[in-house]
Design a binder for these strands. Structure first.
Length: 113
DNA sequence: TATGTGACATCAA
DNA sequence: CTTGATGCCACAT
């Protein structure tokens, strides 16, 4: 029957988990892919509510400017940056270098099955 | 039910 | 150029 469920958060987790290695995306891009372009904030909110069984690489999700706005939510002070650099992504001053080069657009890469 | 909040995005001055 | 303010939607209390 009609079970709405939190398909919003669920979808965010799904998309985030589909982010390929060495790539990054923006909250707005995910929100746009979900059809809630104006709910970019909800994407970040979903990250804050990531269930333990959901392994979501939130460190691969940054804001529109490629700035690691959510790094404060990670353990340590620069864990998010370290994770990104560990994947070959250059980060300078809490900002992703060549962001558009590493940018991964779900609406384009996933582009509807 | 109403109020507050937030890991964004966009515009204006 | 920088800073401020607003909109937005879903969740929490």
């Amino acid at each position: 029957m009609d079970k709405k469920e939190d398909h919003f958060f669920q979808k965010v987790y799904e998309v985030a988990k589909q982010i390929p290695y060495g790539r990054v995306t923006s909250y707005g891009a995910i929100a746009n892919y979900l059809g809630a372009a104006r709910s970019a904030r909800m994407v970040g909110w979903a990250m804050n509510g990531v269930p333990d069984r959901e392994e979501v690489p939130a460190h691969r999700v940054v804001n529109r400017n490629g700035l690691l706005t959510g790094k404060h939510h990670f353990q340590g002070t620069n864990l998010m940056q370290q994770l990104l650099e560990n994947e070959g992504i250059q980060v300078n001053n809490d900002q992703v270098v060549n962001f558009k080069i590493h940018f991964w657009d779900p609406a384009k890469e996933l582009s509807a099955p």
